[in-house]
Design a protein around this nucleic acid. Structure first.
Lengths: 340, 340
DNA sequence: ATGAAAGCGCTAACAC
DNA sequence: GTGTTAGCGCTTTCAT
């Protein structure tokens, strides 16, 4: 295994094996007919030299790129790695490689990342959310490649959207809580004006409550820090400020779990005195003293479905898909919600 | 914004702006001197057409690729997304883009992913662990690009390694526990023979105990399922099986947290009757009823440092680095460990 | 079954 | 400051 400064090329393998570059290329890609004898020679030479093909050149020549751009807001919220897992599981043996870009929930950064990604001419784009700048929408629409917007379906997809309706999810939870007879309800969430999905859940929630003649009794938003710890603190704060609360809806399970731990320690009867619910259906909840009521956001399924669409499109341009693929999450009442 | 099947090329912008392709290229890359007037013309035309450069062609021509391969075992263990965050934070405005490959802890899959990645001729490789197949080591050594092995430094780096010594981490915890006077000690972990870091921690741990004349009193390993729930179950099981235990060391914080919750509910005096410690120093611990003793694995720092090395090397071939950059984690005793 | 020629879209290097 | 020429390392296409 000689170590030279210049990376090996097809030509090196060609010379080492006494076969034309073209035939070497055919062997290495399993394309076209090659005699068993030449195939062996080529494979041997290639392995001996330690040749690694140059996909840059290959992609340029063939106008085919086995990359899928995946654009998500963050890596710190476990939701996105989980979606990614769904994507990689499907793409794994398909020959397509996901490439991840992070936007930090910032539209301008989304634009930059998208531009960067599209300049690699990927076989498809999977992008979180349906809210994008005009610029981003134009780039995506003009790219001529399949685009799957994921997680949320409340909006006009550019191409295809796969996800749940967060507005409906919030509404559904609001209705369930109202139906269970709760009247003094608080909402605790993240201070993220740019997290459209959390915003929509909140909107759907208040809307459902309004329809039942209920107004949010208290609310609080946090940013930064450990979600579990914040959930504790905020729960303590609102319960002291508004002692007659009988339900708290959390915008995510982590703060909900923190709230649950606080309530149990403080000796509250859950859900007798106060009901609690979160959002996401994270695995973590399984190990809590009581199982927190939640709602599955279908994270892995969304990733898997999106990947399947890109895969189908990359193999067969014409595969038809609905504009919106809407998954419907179910409330899992756990042990922190009264039965209606 | 006309939508054509053929993607736009430099030539299209050149014709639309009446400027040579070369000058258009210069404008778009901010390279070389271009008069303000031409620059404006080009920018206008490019924007009007919705041109997105083709990096494939650019990379082939310039022999420069702004990609960094990042190879990690999994996305499901929060540790790796955190390392990734450290990497993206540093790479963010550097012009380098991380591309992630997942190995599922499988050596053969690591080989495949690595081959795939190297065929894009990235500017650097960041890869988890120091254990790799001969094949992988040969590919990396022969690639001629900077390679940073992360998370673990117990082994011979191919190029540079950044991380902690997991063997020392386990040893350190074993010593601290022995020093605090514990004698009946159990270990609970994951059933993953291929997770070398967990294995080394275990080895270091038992070794330190042996030196203090202590033998592991009980142990159990799990796989799959919710770590928090498994931590509960396993803790219950070992405490029933070996009631005289006075310490449990967990291979990660999630199962440790589950164990802590179980012990508190079951009415154990922690750490009076039984001490507990985990590993990783995850943020989650902040919100637990008691703060679990743990040890920071320096995840974000490792990612950041690795990215800085690749960045430095990509800008200046000659920047010298030590072969091993060893971070030293500290035990945070929290509320679940007696003071020695 | 194998090879030769042309060119993918861009940039390095060199003119002017 | 701007343009011209010659590839980058492959694959497509067409010949044999």
């Amino acid at each position: 295994m000689k170590r030279s400064s210049r990376p090996l090329t097809l030509r090196d393998v060609s010379e080492a094996s006494g076969v034309s570059e073209m035939t070497v290329s055919r062997v290495l890609r399993n394309r076209g007919d090659v005699s068993a004898a030449t195939r062996e020679k080529v494979l041997a030479a290639s392995k001996r030299l330690g040749y690694v093909p140059n996909k840059i050149a290959g992609a340029l020549a063939s106008q085919r790129v086995n990359l899928v751009a995946v654009i998500i807001p963050s890596m710190k919220n476990m939701v996105f790695p989980e979606v990614l897992s769904g994507i990689t599981d499907v793409l794994d043996d398909s020959g397509l490689q996901p490439v991840v870009g992070i936007t930090d929930y910032l539209p301008e950064k989304e634009d930059r990342v998208l531009y960067e990604m599209l300049s690699w001419r990927p076989s498809g784009v999977i992008i979180a959310g349906v809210e994008h700048s005009d610029n981003a929408r134009a780039m995506l629409a003009g790219s001529g490649i399949p685009v799957v917007e994921i997680m949320d379906v409340d909006g006009e997809p550019i191409d295809i959207a796969v996800g749940i309706s967060h507005r409906a999810a919030g509404r559904q939870m609001g209705e369930a809580i109202a139906a269970a007879g709760h009247k003094r309800i608080a909402f605790l969430g993240t201070k993220m004006p740019l997290d459209h999905r959390a915003r929509k859940r909140f909107e759907g929630f208040t809307q459902a409550l309004a329809k039942a003649g209920i107004e949010i009794a208290d609310q609080e938003f946090y940013e930064g820090g450990s979600a579990l710890a914040k959930g504790r603190e905020m729960t303590k704060a609102v319960l002291e400020r508004t002692p007659d609360l009988d339900f708290i809806y959390y915008s995510n399970d982590m703060i909900g779990a923190g709230g649950l731990l606080y309530c149990l320690e403080a000796g509250y009867d859950v859900p007798g005195k106060i009901g609690l619910a979160g959002f996401n259906g994270v695995e973590l909840l399984q190990g809590l003293p009581k199982k927190l009521a939640s709602m599955d956001a279908c994270r892995a399924e969304i990733g898997a479905k999106a990947a399947e669409i890109i895969l189908a499109r990359s193999q067969d341009e014409a595969t038809p898909f609905d504009e919106k693929i809407i998954l419907t999450p179910q409330i899992s009442p756990g042990d922190t919600m009264r039965k209606p």
